[in-house]
């Protein structure tokens, strides 16, 4: 087993975006090692974008991002890859390779990075698939599975190299309540099976927040609205935090949009025919 220390993720005055479109600015947070942290926030607030930066797929516009105490974007190529090999990722849609079976998808990192014999790889793969309840589906192609199964398979691939950091983009969205709860349990199992694993879950699922989160980074309005332990979040009296947790829309956030009367009339005239 790996030593329980080290793989925290620290964001310092981080600004991220595309081109010159700033999505998030001035984000400060520490996602502690060995805990389950949750990045929450409304749809389109930049959660996936932030995750792409933690993965080193995009460079930040400003600020620093350190993983395990090392500034990700000042590392030389080889060291950067060393850090990134420590991360397992579940993408929002699974991102399994469509031309490979589930078994081959999960086996891919082992085949590419180790010299293990075929039979051993097969056993590891079946074990990881069993962890996510897909042991019978090793020979299926991603297209032959449901969305929830693809997500679980993505999780199996993410953990196949026993990474100390596991990042999941919306593992429960699009799943029915039973499967969503199963996914939460899977993540808790991960932490139990791999002590010291830093797990970061992007979500807007409040039930998952209750079920698994220790730490929370809440994004709102282009920056961090809250960062800290989940108990402090519940005790917070910040209006946005409250409206998010109580699933309430404040008067000033409700959108008033109506069609111009003559346009509505024109549409009605057509619909009546």
């Amino acid at each position: 087993m790996r030593a329980t220390s080290g793989w925290d993720i620290r964001l310092d005055a981080l600004a991220v975006g595309y081109g010159d479109h700033v999505v998030l600015h001035d984000v400060n947070a520490l996602l502690p090692a060995g805990e389950i942290s949750m990045i929450i926030g409304g749809s389109g607030c930049g959660k996936s974008t932030l995750l792409r930066h933690v993965l080193g797929l995009q460079r930040p516009m400003a600020g620093t991002l350190s993983v395990g105490g090392r500034d990700l974007f000042t590392l030389a190529g080889r060291d950067f890859r060393k850090v990134r090999r420590r991360m397992g990722v579940l993408f929002q849609d699974g991102a399994l390779l469509g031309s490979l079976t589930l078994g081959d998808n999960v086996a891919l990192p082992l085949r590419e990075h180790t010299g293990l014999p075929k039979a051993t790889i097969r056993q590891i793969v079946l074990h990881k698939l069993a962890l996510v309840g897909l042991a019978d589906y090793a020979d299926y192609y991603p297209n032959q599975l449901s969305g929830g199964m693809r997500k679980r398979a993505g999780l199996a691939r993410a953990i196949v190299m026993d990474p100390p950091i596991l990042l999941c983009d919306e593992p429960t969205s699009g799943l029915d309540p039973v499967n969503a709860a199963r996914m939460d349990h899977l993540l808790l199992d991960m932490q139990a099976n791999f002590p010291g694993m830093t797990i970061v879950v992007v979500s807007h699922d409040l039930r998952s927040l209750d079920a698994i989160a220790n730490y929370v980074l809440m994004l709102h309005d282009g920056t961090a609205a809250f960062a800290g332990p989940v108990d402090a979040l519940r005790a917070s009296d910040d209006p946005y935090v409250r409206s998010f947790l109580d699933r309430r829309v404040d008067e000033d956030q409700r959108t008033e949009v109506s069609l111009a009367p003559e346009v509505q009339q024109a549409l009605d005239a057509w619909l009546e025919r």
Partner: peptide
Amino acid sequence: MRITDQIDALDVMDI
């Protein structure tokens, strides 16, 4: 593969 994040997934797996 590009538009479905599969290439990013390879990159992240250090492949």
